[in-house]
Simulated assay, not measured.
Amino acid sequence: MKKLLLALAITMTSFTAQASDLVTKISPHSVNDTMDRLVAAVEKAGATVFARVDHAKGAMSIDAELAPNQMLVFGNPKLGTPIMQQNPAAGLDLPIRVVVFQDTDGKTNVAYHNPSRIADDHGLPADFKALQMMGGAVDKLTGAATAE
């Protein structure tokens, strides 16, 4: 029984640590409008939009229902390249992905992983300048998308 409780405690601690890097914001706009605003903010900032994925549309292709849910993949080589120069495996977490979705209460949520987790996952210093800049940029861009 002690081993089971210890395993459960370790699992919960691990889950909490992983979940803590998830940033979620509420948007007063629809999923589509929030995503349009995010795309506009990203492009205005000079970053590149690589893909806009409509998960709900994908679900419809298999005759399944999914509340509005879209993901944006975007980045800026000026920030991502120095990170991957330090550890090429960081490319697994770049470019940045932001998901905009409607929750069960009908609210629009914007969620992304804090780029600071890349330091932990890929053995980079926590104060790596490109990661700090990336974190600030994603916060500002998602803030623009969710503003009144």
Rank of each mutant, 00 (worst) to 15 (best):
K44R: 15
K44N: 14
K44P: 10
A45S: 15
A45I: 09
A45K: 15
A45R: 15
G46E: 10
G46R: 04
G46W: 05
A47C: 15
T48E: 12
V49F: 01
V49D: 00
V49H: 10
F50Q: 15
A51Q: 14
A51N: 09
R52L: 07
R52D: 08
R52I: 13
V53R: 09
V53S: 08
V53Q: 01
D54W: 04
D54V: 09
H55M: 04
H55W: 07
A56R: 12
A56W: 00
K57Q: 14
K57A: 14
K57C: 03
K57P: 11
A59W: 05
A59Q: 05
A59C: 04
S61L: 08
S61A: 10
S61R: 13
S61C: 01
I62H: 13
D63A: 12
D63R: 13
A64Q: 12
A64Y: 09
A64R: 11
L66Y: 01
A67K: 12
A67T: 05
P68H: 00
P68E: 07
P68G: 01
P68V: 01
P68Y: 04
Q70A: 10
M71I: 06
M71F: 00
L72Y: 06
L72T: 04
V73E: 02
V73K: 00
G75V: 02
K78D: 09
K78R: 15
L79Q: 02
L79S: 08
L79H: 04
T81G: 03
P82V: 09
P82C: 01
I83F: 03
I83V: 15
I83N: 14
I83D: 05
Q85P: 07
Q85L: 15
Q85D: 10
Q85R: 12
Q86G: 13
P88Q: 13
A90T: 02
A90F: 04
A90D: 11
G91F: 06
G91H: 07
L92H: 08
L92E: 09
D93Y: 07
L94C: 11
L94V: 02
P95W: 03
P95N: 11
I96E: 08
I96C: 11
I96W: 03
I96N: 09
